[in-house]
Design a protein around this nucleic acid. Structure first.
Lengths: 347, 347
DNA sequence: TTGAAAGCGCTAACAC
DNA sequence: GTGTTAGCGCTTTCAA
């Protein structure tokens, strides 16, 4: 079986290519009879339209670009899933690239996406990215751009939107909840503050303590790698160095929380009765730990959906030659209380 | 700044488009001087080649299609990562689609990929797929096809390769290991046997018992949902119905194993001393459970890499008008022994 | 070493 | 309703 082109269909039907094109696009100006004939033959010959040609001719590819640090792990696959689903609904296909957390690859991928004529790009930054000239260039050339999660701070302008999570609010909720559970000496395991997620979670912690009239004890704040090993080490240090253990731990991510929990249990203390524990991100394994881990759900899919919608808005505006209205969306995370922090019966 | 085309470059340089095209492609027939001039202006005007046009003209898109059931979870993101990385090395871009486990979407996505002129497709089947006519069609039309993980059984022919995991060998290794640890009454939590992964793991279990002279006790085989809840229920049933608990549990996936482990511990039994536990897939959380869970690593990335290589082979053959040589690759999984099954000191 | 010309497959303005 | 024509941006013979 040979590949059949639209022109080929036209010949066999004694029609012009334009009519066939219109028939296949279900234009109203084509007679029903003709449409039927065209469709029938297209079906018979298994005609497959060539999107590349169509896109070239139209000057619109119907493709959106996605650039993420990686497509493994918990967070990004979920976001990408949201993006892919929402884009598909809107009739777009997506082209997905990974930077592997490498600024150089990020730059290359941006070019790749452009060369493939994507109509807009959704990006979450590689954590090594310092130089943002490649994004500046996109902005200047009017390529609609949406940053999500890891955004370029203070990078505003026409054609650049962003969707981020309110990490501060998430952390605040967690700490508030711990206080409500009767905890008074709440430790915090933080990641490096140059990463905005950790900075904001850290600030949420401080603000929640302040707003509830609790003193801030710097000894209770530990900067550690946000991994299980990091959490383990941090917790060991606290138990060793403090006169009495804290009555709660809020870790900036779930892995560190798990590490802490293990150490607490190994020390003969009970979770949550002696030490309540909470993490952040609502990883899959939070319902597999013992006890199940209280965490903050980030609504990953929602973030993907938002990103696509923001991009679509900009595309519409661009198409209508109106000034695009960049928007910044801040998503509210959701506290999920599980056994690891629940000391009082649920209301 | 305007979008610049190759033709535009040519005009500004007083060259023909063909020369510019050759210069950019670094053809040897173009003088170095000309190449330099072209590159300089291309740089200055920030020329971005239009892949769509190039692909259309060449008849080669340089794009590979990927179709997976979903891009969330543990397994598929890893495989896709392998695919994307390997494809990128070979100078291909990938287009990733999800079927969401839905046969109809799968069919649609196949069309989408074709319309986008992918040069070949890598597929892992949706679990609802019964009718495989859309793949049969691809095969007949000579679109190179590689199935991975979830393959169409007995679907062989030119232009169709496959890469699967040797689930039987993986299960066999697990059970052999449990036997070596002194276990004699090894229970098996299986998924539905119409899924080849579960069927093969189940058979591996039986064969390992047989080869080591252990009797097969049908009472020790439980069919249950391969989830934490499923494992929980299955384990509860065993403890309730058997005169004595088994001395090991091999679950067809890690979640079910976690469910079992919890029930065992709740019943006051120790893991692994009283009951050893092992799962399958080496999910991320296997190092987070208490004790850490013995499992089988599937080498997900390797699978992705293999898929791309198989596809490339077929593309080469096709390009050289040779009969493509479809190949079937079977990857060997790796047993990872952790605390949940380790009764004896490591050798 | 360079240029002219043709055309990949499709769509859309403009005719009739 | 349908056809004619032109051209999206690029590559690739073929000729000079």
């Amino acid at each position: 079986m040979q590949r059949v082109s639209l022109t080929e269909l036209a010949k066999q039907l004694n029609l012009s290519p334009s009519t066939v094109s219109r028939a296949l696009a279900d234009h109203s100006e084509v007679s029903e009879a003709t449409k039927a004939r065209v469709r029938k033959l297209a079906q018979e010959l298994n005609y497959q339209p060539n999107q590349l040609a169509a896109a070239l001719r139209r000057g619109r590819s119907n493709t959106l670009g996605v650039l993420v640090p990686h497509i493994t792990g918990h967070f990004f696959p979920q976001v990408v899933h949201g993006i892919a689903t929402e884009a598909s609904k809107a009739g777009f296909t997506v082209m997905i690239c990974q930077s592997n957390e490498d600024a150089a690859q990020e730059k290359k991928n941006i070019e790749l996406l452009r060369h493939n004529q994507v109509e807009g790009i959704m990006v979450s930054l590689a954590n090594t990215t310092q130089d943002i000239s490649h994004f500046e260039e996109l902005r200047q050339q009017g390529v609609p751009l949406v940053f999500f999660d890891r955004v370029v701070e203070d990078f505003r302008g026409a054609n650049v939107s962003a969707v981020v999570l309110d990490d501060h609010a998430g952390a605040y909720q967690v700490v508030q909840h711990l206080i409500e559970q009767g905890c008074r000496r709440i430790a915090h395991f933080s990641g490096p503050l140059h990463m905005s997620i950790h900075k904001n979670r850290h600030q949420g912690y401080r603000d929640a303590l302040r707003d509830h009239g609790l003193p801030l004890d710097e000894q209770l704040i530990v900067f550690c790698e946000q991994s299980q090993a990091g959490g383990t080490e941090a917790m060991q240090r606290l138990l060793r160095e403090l006169p009495a253990p804290p009555d709660a731990v809020f870790a900036s991510n779930d892995l560190a929380a798990v590490g802490a929990m293990r150490v607490i249990k190994a020390a003969g203390l009970r979770v949550p009765q002696d030490v309540a524990v909470a993490g952040f991100s609502n990883e899959t394994f939070t319902t597999l730990t013992e006890p199940n881990l209280t965490s903050v759900d980030q609504g990953c899919e929602t973030m993907g959906i938002s990103a696509v919608r923001l991009l679509q808005q900009m595309l519409h505006h661009t198409a209508e030659h109106r000034q695009p209205q960049p928007r910044n969306v801040v998503l509210k995370p959701q506290l999920l209380v599980r056994e690891s922090s629940l000391r009082k019966p649920r209301k």
